[in-house]
């Protein structure tokens, strides 16, 4: 019997949280299920929207962290 997948399964697939075997099965299922394929495409678009929007810390903060680590290194 063919296994039916849900949006939760697609979500796990999207975030690479499925086994290799499950991955192949979901990909097969997606190829013949319009609703889940549409959901997957929505995930891809939303990911694209979110991915470019990371905040960046200042260089000073990064330098402080590296300096701290270096200081400990010198003490040991």
């Amino acid at each position: 019997m063919t296994k039916t997948f849900t949006e939760n399964d697609v979500l796990k697939y999207f975030y690479n949280e499925v086994s290799k075997l499950e991955k192949e099965k979901i990909e097969d299922f997606l190829s013949c299920n319009n609703a889940l394929t549409e959901f997957y495409c929505e995930l891809l678009t939303t990911e694209e929207l979110l991915e470019g929007k990371l905040e960046k810390p200042t260089e000073k903060t990064i330098q402080n962290i590296l300096d701290y680590s270096n200081t400990l290194c010198l003490q040991n």
């Binding site: 990371l54 905040e55 990064i62 590296l66 680590s69 270096n70 290194c73």
Partner: peptide, 19 residues
């Protein structure tokens, strides 16, 4: 003891951690 390795780790993950 490789401090350069830590620098790469920090730069690799800083934006996600900060966000």
């Amino acid at each position: 003891g490789n401090e350069r390795a830590f620098e790469i780790l920090v730069n690799r993950h800083k934006d996600k951690v900060f966000t």
